[in-house]
Design a protein around this nucleic acid. Sequence first.
DNA 1: CAGGAATTCAAACGCCGGTTTGAAAAGTGG
DNA 2: CCACTTTTCAAACCGGCGTTTGAATTCCTG
Lengths: 196, 196
Amino acid sequence: MRAAERLFAEGGYDGTSIRAIVAKAKVNQAAINYHFDGKDGLYREVLRVAFRALTEHQLEHAEELKSMSREEALSQFIRRQVQPLLGRDEYSRHMRIFNWETVQPTTVFRNLVAEEAAPFLGLAADLVRRFIPDADQRTVTVAAIWLLGQCSVFVRNREQLAEPPVGLVLDEQAVEWLSATISNWVVSGLRPLRTN
Amino acid sequence: MRAAERLFAEGGYDGTSIRAIVAKAKVNQAAINYHFDGKDGLYREVLRVAFRALTEHQLEHAEELKSMSREEALSQFIRRQVQPLLGRDEYSRHMRIFNWETVQPTTVFRNLVAEEAAPFLGLAADLVRRFIPDADQRTVTVAAIWLLGQCSVFVRNREQLAEPPVGLVLDEQAVEWLSATISNWVVSGLRPLRTN
DNA sequence: CAGGAATTCAAACGCCGGTTTGAAAAGTGG
DNA sequence: CCACTTTTCAAACCGGCGTTTGAATTCCTG
């Protein structure tokens, strides 16, 4: 599972052969079929744990956010979202598997999202709702997705952004700055409901 | 080329076989090797035209933006960015090929970005600079990427967002509303340089 | 410790991928 | 029309893929 997670994160479903997985894990090739019912089954399992870990990463701190000011809460949320920028840890690996799916989602993934993404999206929606309490449902939902987009663009394109012409290298300090900057923009973006 | 573009957009590089392309284009299989020097070469060519078309789509209107107010200009830019939400046209197909590359960029793509993305990114940077004229270089660059992220999250996840639990269906009117809403948030987000 | 179930393993199978081949066809300039 | 180059084509080639097989080994229980 650990080997599979790493390789799937690196090369995606199609780009990862079970021969590569068994070589890395030092197990027999047929064992995957025996235990996981084929490559599909193994991938499904990896995807499940990755997805769970990702949403729980935010949800387990959901309670804390409620006791903060709306600005603080939003800032914390954003900090958590951009955290995978820091390194090749487990979290950023899960994020990468997740990213592979966004281009052409597997059925497994579709179901996972349909069934389990609601709490996470709800968390983001709650956060923005504190800024735009009078907005209708659709606006709040869009605002939540909008919020996620502002973080994910940096996470998703991390490697690309590190190269020319951008050359954005992010150490711990820079990530802190980035998250603060985004927070600032989001907060002042949402604060005035209508400006014109 | 046309057949290849469609299929590569649909299934990505690995997910598209030469045999599928030649079947759709009704040409002989060996012809691709003869004319394009293999699958790689064909893909490279498709990628090139897609990339050119994408950046030019924005750049050819760059001049007009300069004569507008900064709010109008930003709004126009955003409208163009979210336009592929509307349908399966050529532009959104190019966007999709582009998306495949963001997960694991080809060398070809890396070079294309390094060589030709600068003008496009510069356009976005110019737009935000009009709101934060005193900001340093890095802040402007980050703001430009941040701006792009707010649009791309809707474009990239269009199909996913149309399903539960979000259920965001976007007709022409809704896209207009979305682009106006994002513009509002971005504008008021950038307007006050510092709020705390 | 015996005996049956669960697990591991090396090898082989069938399939599909991109590429190569060498001959046939079409095009071109003298 | 002829020599020559360029382009098309069907077939074969080779490698990597996921899966299957059947025997060997390990594990567990009575």
